[in-house]
């Protein structure tokens, strides 16, 4: 039922975008905004990849790493959750060069957003791993598996199912925080909107289109994650295991 409402919302959003892009007063902005949206999607996808890698690494390090590595993971998680993505973005963008590290805005954006979401993701991964019943560990121990085998073959596949809904939320957060990269001069969707707004003062059509475009991206992710959720619950828990 709920997924149907989401699908209806996505259909309505896409329809609205298509209709508006044929309207005078709207259509001039469409090509520029689509260009911006493409950059937004690129940053989001790369950021998401980095976030997943960071989350897994940090969670495993915090749970099972040797002491110094554990501290490092804790520091990473707390620092990146304790400040906002914008502060991290500005810090990487403005402060790193003063230490002699020069990076383009694009890698800075991917790095900042990926690290930020990765820190939240680490807690999601850790929580999901710890939620796997103790009996599963004990059974794998009784089968004489190594810890890596247990994690890879037994624990993570089960934790995976529990992780999907919170990761869905995190990906939405990631998409939304890509709008911040406009503040470090990257020409994403938000940047294009601001630029056109200053040039033409056609505020209403521009921001309406922008909201619709973000909505389309977010709803697509939400719906995909819902399907993944259903598929994982069936495939991992009922089909194969136990």
């Amino acid at each position: 039922m709920w997924i149907r409402v989401l699908a209806a919302m996505l259909a309505a959003t896409l329809t609205a975008i298509v209709i508006l892009s044929f309207q005078d007063g709207f259509k001039v902005f469409v090509p520029g905004l689509l260009q911006g949206a493409w950059l937004t999607v690129q940053i989001a996808v790369l950021g998401a990849l980095l976030a997943v890698v960071m989350a897994l690494t940090a969670a495993l390090a915090k749970l099972y790493g040797p002491l110094p590595l554990r501290w490092l993971a804790v520091a990473y998680i707390e620092i990146f959750r304790g400040t906002s993505a914008l502060v991290q973005l500005f810090w990487l963008y403005f402060v790193l060069p003063q230490f002699g590290i020069f990076m383009d805005a694009f890698p800075v954006a991917v790095l900042a957003l990926g690290l930020n979401i990765g820190a939240y993701g680490a807690e999601v991964v850790r929580g999901a791993i710890r939620a796997v019943p103790k009996g599963q560990w004990e059974a794998s121990t009784a089968l004489n598996m190594t810890r890596a085998q247990m994690l890879r073959r037994i624990i993570l596949p089960q934790a995976f199912v529990a992780m999907i809904p919170p990761w869905g939320n995190l990906f939405i957060e990631l998409v939304k925080s890509t709008s911040l990269v406009s503040l470090i001069t990257l020409a994403d969707l938000t940047f294009k909107a601001q630029q056109m707004n200053q040039a033409t003062l056609q505020t209403v059509p521009i921001f309406t289109l922008v909201l619709l475009l973000y909505l389309a991206i977010s709803l697509t992710i939400t719906i995909c994650m819902r399907f993944t959720e259903g598929w994982a619950a069936k495939g991992v828990l009922h089909g194969k295991a136990s």
Partner: peptide, 18 residues
């Protein structure tokens, strides 16, 4: 769902400019 699916920054711009 609408509010949560769009960036806060855009919402700020929207209220401020629109």
């Amino acid at each position: 769902e609408l509010v949560r699916s769009t960036p806060l920054l855009i919402q700020i711009f929207f209220l401020f400019f629109v």
